[in-house]
């Protein structure tokens, strides 16, 4: 019972962070700030939801060996996403940088009009 509550909490908070990431993707002003939302929200929400599924699966299958094996596979997915998501964020950031997308920078000097167009 307590495990079920923990897994439901994890899944709901994962959905909540995913909502934040989606809102960031829609609302943030330029490409680089959108990458912030994508890189962070995506990683944590996926990890939380998959962790919740793993806990729930082990609980409903009474901690048998086969269920723990499935949970270990889920753990492998979590580790893979944990490594690959920041890496792909970084490489897409680099790709955008090399493709010549100009970042919107904050207004701290007079000649910032060059960075505001695009």
């Amino acid at each position: 019972m307590i495990i079920e509550i923990i897994s439901i909490t994890m899944i709901i908070s994962g959905l909540f962070f995913f909502l934040g990431a989606v809102a960031g993707i829609i609302r943030f002003p330029d490409f680089y700030t959108r990458m912030h939302a994508a890189g962070k929200g995506d990683t944590l929400s996926t990890v939380l939801v998959i962790g919740g599924i793993a806990l729930y699966y082990m609980e409903t299958h009474h901690w048998e060996w086969s269920a723990i094996l499935v949970a270990l596979k889920l753990l492998a997915i979590i580790i893979f996403i944990f490594i690959s998501s920041p890496t792909s964020t970084h490489i897409l950031m680099k790709a955008g940088f090399d493709a010549g997308i100009k970042p919107k920078l904050k207004e701290n000097s007079e000649n910032n009009t060059t960075s505001e167009e695009s």
């Binding site: 934040g20 809102a23 912030h36 962070k40 929200g41």
Partner: peptide
């Protein structure tokens, strides 16, 4: 730090 940063993104976006 990851959890703090997610709350930061949530705050900025929502």
């Amino acid at each position: 730090e990851i959890i703090v940063s997610n709350f930061h993104v949530l705050y900025l976006a929502l």
